[in-house]
């Protein structure tokens, strides 16, 4: 038994050694999220509002290039509708896709042309390339948001803290031109992106009051889904796998005891 405890302790110490330095920046404020924990699922209403915030605010500068419109209607996604198991048929998804303009082509005369999006398209990027994005944002590149909550340590809390964390620079801090003060930012306290939200910036279709905190929370919920779209499927499968492995272990232990019953060892 002691040896078993020793092996567990070894495992625990190994995983404890994995704690990463969080880089610069103040530690993110811990929020309660519905998607946390073994049984966690996304808050669909919040993620839908978050998509609206993303579309109306963030998408002006940020891309989310790994997300296709059909993804929005997948199982576990904000706009999933059980009536449309094939998300390409989901009318909400189709309608959202149509709101975006996609560059396609070349046509028969060799020119690129614009057309409304279809469910098969990825969310189009606001700039043609990285250089164009930097040129339009005084040299700072607005990162792609499809993985942002997994590409930052403690990502969801970090993003929420960052979005709600803008304040005036304290005494003695000299801000560079065009920079905003944000104590949570990992790349130092000065950020090229100014505070993106003010109260009432978007008008939520479901009537929720659009405070800065609410918008930050909703867009974080949406982007957490975007970074980990299969979470609900994964956790559901994981639960079944754990139950199966537990039962299998019991059976194997029984078999083991049966085989070894009369053997001294």
């Amino acid at each position: 038994m002691l040896k078993r405890i020793a092996s567990l302790a070894l495992l625990a110490s190994l995983s404890a050694g994995l704690a990463f330095a969080a880089g610069g920046g103040k530690e993110a404020r811990k929020q309660n999220w519905k998607f946390e924990g073994v049984f966690g699922t996304y808050d669909k209403a919040s993620a839908q509002r978050g998509f609206q915030v993303f579309q109306e605010v963030c998408a002006a500068c940020h891309s989310a290039k790994y997300i296709a419109f059909y993804n929005l209607g997948d199982k576990g996604a904000p706009f999933y509708d059980p009536a449309y198991p094939n998300s390409n048929d989901n009318p909400v998804v189709k309608a959202i896709a149509k709101q975006f303009t996609v560059t396609a082509g070349p046509d028969s005369s060799g020119d690129m042309f614009e057309r409304p999006g279809t469910s098969a398209d990825k969310i189009p990027a606001p700039f043609a390339n990285e250089m164009a994005a930097m040129a339009a944002n005084s040299g700072a590149f607005p990162p792609d948001l499809s993985l942002i909550t997994r590409a930052r340590y403690n990502g969801s809390n970090y993003l929420y803290s960052l979005l709600t964390g803008y304040k005036d620079a304290p005494e003695g801090v000299q801000l560079s031109a065009g920079m905003s003060y944000n104590p949570y930012f990992t790349g130092g306290n000065q950020m090229a992106m100014g505070a993106p939200f003010i109260d009432g910036l978007v008008e939520y279709t479901d009537g929720t009051t659009a405070s800065v905190e609410q918008m930050s929370r909703d867009v974080t919920e949406f982007l957490t889904w975007a970074a980990d779209p299969k979470m609900e499927q994964r956790k559901g499968t994981g639960l079944m796998v754990m139950i199966y492995l537990f039962l299998l272990s019991l059976l194997l232990y029984g078999s083991y005891r049966a085989v070894w019953r009369d053997v001294k060892h």
């Binding site: 994995l18 970074a227 956790k235 994981g238 796998v241």
Partner: peptide, 18 residues
Amino acid sequence: AWFLFFMPDSLGHPDNLI
């Protein structure tokens, strides 16, 4: 399975998703 299904990012580094 616990790592795989419930903490898949714990053994990796967030920077590798940039």
